[in-house]
Amino acid sequence: MSKLLVSPSPHIHSENSTRSLMFDVVVALLPAVLCSFLFYGWREILVMAVSVGSCLLLEWAITRYMLRKPSTIGDMSAVVTGILLGLNLPYTTPWWVVFIGAAVAIGVAKMTFGGLGQNVFNPALVGRVFLLVSFPTYMTTWSAPQGLFGVDAVSGATPLSAVQEGLMRGSTIQELTSGYDYADMLFASIGGSAGEVCALALLAGFVYLLIRKVIKPWITLSIFGTVALVSLIFWGIDPSRFTDPLFNLLTGGLILGACFMATDYVTSPMSLWGGVIFGVGIGFLTMMIRYFGSYPEGVSFAILIMNSFVPLLDRAFKQKKFGR
């Protein structure tokens, strides 16, 4: 006999699911991933495979054997973490270092806080920063792109670290940046970690996320705006000591960080103004670290620092309530 189903309203549901949202992020990251494969060759494929594979494995193992709960790898959030971590590492990173990074990202930054949705800090960034602090040699030996079919392995420094080292030696910015072509930066042929290579591919992914309404543009735009403004001011004061805005926007992990890491749902504020302040904070801290810090790059640190302000921002900035 057929029976009547009963449940409280609403009786229909939008097509959104955690899985579909995460899948959209993966799709948005694909151009950047493919670019990195193309420019760095099989070693980058290995790094990415180890990163995604170990994130999935660890999430599965922890939920299955330590928490004894149903596995959550189906929601694809571990895949996103894995890809982001892979994009944050140089292609020369040994596989076991990648695995340690994944273990820190999933095991420490995500699962100890209670899994998806509970973590305060972006797992991929925690993994990256842990590796940066623990294995600086592997993490800062950058190599210029070599190409999937190319043979010339050219080692060199990323633009940002080249500039910092050069400044220490007493060179001026003009001398140091004369070798870089901004068009090259946009289309990827400068050194850096996998995700820092092709700005255009990352921006394409960002636009895809905006069109699919997965994320909102406030955070990213306020980061870009702040970075541009701060560097404009300093560059205007002394162009021989400080790099120009376009250089700052296009180098390092800024685009990857601003488009994909700072906009992570779990670790970013929900409200418009909270998001704007969050973005301004990230942009400002990034530029302070780049100009005055001992590390050449500051996006990861800036995002992690601002992550810790998210609960406060959520509390302080609320949506306007109807009729109140």
Binding site: N16, T18, L21, T72, D75, S77, G115, L116, G117, Q118, Y265, V266, M270, S271, Q319, K320, K321, F322, R324
Partner: peptide, 17 residues
Amino acid sequence: GSCIRCGKCTDACPMGL
């Protein structure tokens, strides 16, 4: 599943809750 803090509910709420 777990709340991923995507904010879709706050965006959707017509009363601003």
